[in-house]
Amino acid sequence: MSDLRHAPDPDAPPTPEEEAAAAALAGALEPRAPQAVPPELAGALAALRAAAPAAPGQAAPARVLAAVPRPARWRWLLPVGGLATAAAAAALVLLVAPPRPAALPAPGRELLLAQAEAARGSPRPLERAMRGYRREVYAALRTRYGEAP
């Protein structure tokens, strides 16, 4: 397959035939206005062209991606509608769900001691402690539920 024995010297002066044929070949390879391909070289030229690596640019050109269809205008409503639906469902749950109970104050040490005294037969300290504790409980209920109708 080696052509080294038959190949003319690359640097030898061209013959008139070679000059004409070289101009014709250059015209045939011209991308914008190609002339007729020399028929005796057509097969070889096709093989050479086909052997070029088919490796386009790694990324798609910007103008190609710009042709990707844009979503229809109304589609932006889908996520908005979804949010609105979720918000309405949350509001409904809050409205029908039972309210959280009020956080009542824990009985203090004085009240607990007064209870012990009452259990031993001395109710007076308990009455005093309960008055204060009741005030605290009512205040917590007012804070949570508002004034009584």
Partner: peptide, 21 residues
Amino acid sequence: LGTFDVLLLRAVRAFARAWEP
């Protein structure tokens, strides 16, 4: 440029002789 055109012609002819589809 003209020298390259001649070089390419000779190269394509040499390839065509070597190429047997």
